[in-house]
């Protein structure tokens, strides 16, 4: 039991009762067994509204133990409001260690980013997913989308990519680019930028996805292939930040945020706040290795 100080109430360890935590863990096992498949789950009541990160929170709280070190980021930042509040909540109800440092964390909850630093086998990354259904944009009925997944009928998804190419000359998906997991299920990777998509594939760590409002859990186990949907002649690309570098660190190979100054000028800074701090204060952490990043490094390196 954990004493809640403000109202002097007692909660179960990690807020959710043990039976519900067990249920969530069992659903997570199922999700890991069928990579990319959306498993319905209970989505119990939380002190925050559904859709405000409850899916990620459910997973975190059902997995966390006293020996865990918890890190939470929102859009790459450890210090944003959503991250701070959820961190406090987890800290208050579990008394576990929290950290900003990616390498020290065992559980990392995230919204909209994967860390710039490569994750290892002992780490679990947990996504707060707003819309788990990649087909929702092309098919509004849940019954239909379930059938489409069951029969691997992804024609409409492909046509929507084709239409995007026809209308705009490229596949215009910034965040949440649809991916195919383990050669079977098409999955929504949560609204992470295309920059992060290749890091889902063949990773050391476990990726868990929780959508609280939609009541769905899914997973990408370690060493699972995750391929972005692409045509033979129209390929998936990551964001290019050509000729741009971080104002603070001078870093060129990282996902950059565009900031507007009061004089109207734009500057760029590294989006991942911990990655930026590590570069500034210690040494550059080891980044993910993927072919898109290698290509980019070669391109940037050859230009200089």
């Amino acid at each position: 039991m954990v004493e809640e100080k403000k109202f002097h109430r007692q909660f179960n360890y990690a807020f959710i009762d043990e039976r519900t935590k067990k249920e969530i863990r069992r659903k997570l096992l199922k999700a890991v067994c069928i990579p990319g498949y959306q498993v319905p789950y209970s989505s119990p009541e939380m002190p925050i509204a559904r859709g405000w990160g409850t899916g990620g929170l459910h997973i975190t709280l059902s997995l966390i133990g006293k020996e865990d070190t918890f890190k939470i980021i929102d859009q790459g930042s450890d210090a944003s409001v959503n991250a701070c509040n959820l961190r406090d909540f987890v800290k208050n109800t579990t008394d576990c260690d929290t950290t900003f440092e990616t390498s020290k964390a065992t559980l990392i909850q995230t919204r909209h980013r994967i860390t710039e630093e490569e994750l290892k086998a002992h780490q679990i990354m947990i996504f707060q997913v707003p819309q788990p259904e990649p087909l929702r944009g092309v098919e509004r009925y849940e019954k239909k989308t379930r059938e489409m997944h069951a029969e691997a009928d992804y024609a409409k998804m492909w046509v929507s990519l084709y239409e995007s190419f026809v209308r705009f000359g490229d596949i215009m998906r910034g965040a949440g680019y649809p991916v195919k997991v383990n050669g079977r299920y098409v999955m929504s990777p949560s609204p992470i930028p295309r920059w992060d998509i290749p890091n889902l594939s063949d990773a050391e760590c476990l990726y868990l996805f929780g959508a609280g409002r939609e009541k769905r859990l899914y997973a990408v186990p370690p060493h699972t292939t995750v391929e972005p949907l692409e045509f033979e002649d129209v390929k998936f690309k990551i964001e290019q930040f050509e000729g741009l570098k971080c104002e603070i660190t001078g870093e060129q190979i990282a996902f950059l945020d565009e900031l507007y100054g009061s004089d109207g000028k734009t500057t760029h800074v590294v989006n991942d706040s911990d990655f930026m701090n590590q570069i500034k204060e210690k040494e550059r952490p080891i980044q993910w290795v993927n072919r898109y990043l290698t290509e980019k490094i070669e391109k940037t390196f050859n230009k200089n």
Partner: peptide
Amino acid sequence: AEKLLMAGNFHV
């Protein structure tokens, strides 16, 4: 395109 894609043609 929907028909062609379903027959395995993924070349725009």
